[in-house]
């Protein structure tokens, strides 16, 4: 298949929430090395709460993303609240009104999400943030789009993982951990890691539905 319907896909966000909640302890552990160690619990709180609100409702993917965005923006705070909140709001905007989501729509969604993040944060690739995951993943998806939707998703997921791992060797230049200078080298960035979980979960959910 080349596309999935937009309607009735709120389970994709529930699957995403399940992944985030399952990785709560890991995310907090990564965050604790150079941050304050609450990334996992904050993410799990936000995504878990959104999943509860979506559960059992027949919603389009963009509507479910808006619910997630509202919870992240309205109740979570911190830097991840606005960053992911705006990312999902913009992603939802890109999907709104579409009956089907094909590779072009997915690409538009990724670009909109990236623009949302960049609109509120000012990190660049190499600053040891979630941008290090998101930017190469979006580029990889676009580059592989010609080979089919599912293939492009696989490339996106692989690029997200490479992007996440690239943060190990980086020195943080933005956010709380930037104050650590060289001491921030050698560990993953928590935001890059959660962003990778988001992209790989979305990728897997889409691929499952495409096949």
């Amino acid at each position: 298949m080349t596309h999935i319907p937009n309607a009735g896909q709120s389970a994709i966000i529930e699957e995403l929430a399940e992944v985030i909640v399952a990785n709560k302890a890991w995310l907090s552990e990564i965050d604790g090395k150079i941050g304050d160690g609450d990334h996992g619990s904050n993410m799990a709180k936000g995504f878990g709460k959104a999943a509860e609100r979506i559960h059992g409702k027949d919603m389009s993917l963009d509507a479910a993303m808006l619910v997630l965005s509202d919870v992240l923006m309205g109740e979570i705070g911190g830097s991840m609240g606005p960053l992911y909140g705006l990312m999902f709001e913009e992603m939802a905007g890109a999907l709104k009104g579409r009956d089907d989501i094909d590779a072009d729509a997915f690409s538009a969604m990724l670009h909109a999400g990236l623009a949302g993040v960049q609109g509120v944060g000012n990190a660049k690739v190499g600053d040891k943030t979630l941008i290090d995951t998101l930017v190469p993943a979006v580029a990889a998806f676009d580059a592989a789009k010609g080979r089919g939707f599912a293939a492009a998703l696989t490339e996106m997921e692989a690029a997200a993982e490479r992007g996440r791992d690239s943060t190990i060797d980086l020195v943080a230049r933005i956010g709380r951990s930037s104050r650590l200078g060289e001491r921030s080298r050698g560990v993953l960035d928590a935001g890059a890691t959660s962003c990778c979980l988001i992209l790989t979960s979305l990728g897997a959910s889409f691929r499952k539905r495409l096949s």
């Binding site: 609450d38 904050n42 705070g77 609240g81 606005p82």
Partner: peptide, 11 residues
């Protein structure tokens, strides 16, 4: 007031 060590959201 936000959550522990996290900024309050805009609301």
């Amino acid at each position: 007031v936000g959550n522990i060590f996290a900024s309050p959201p805009p609301d």
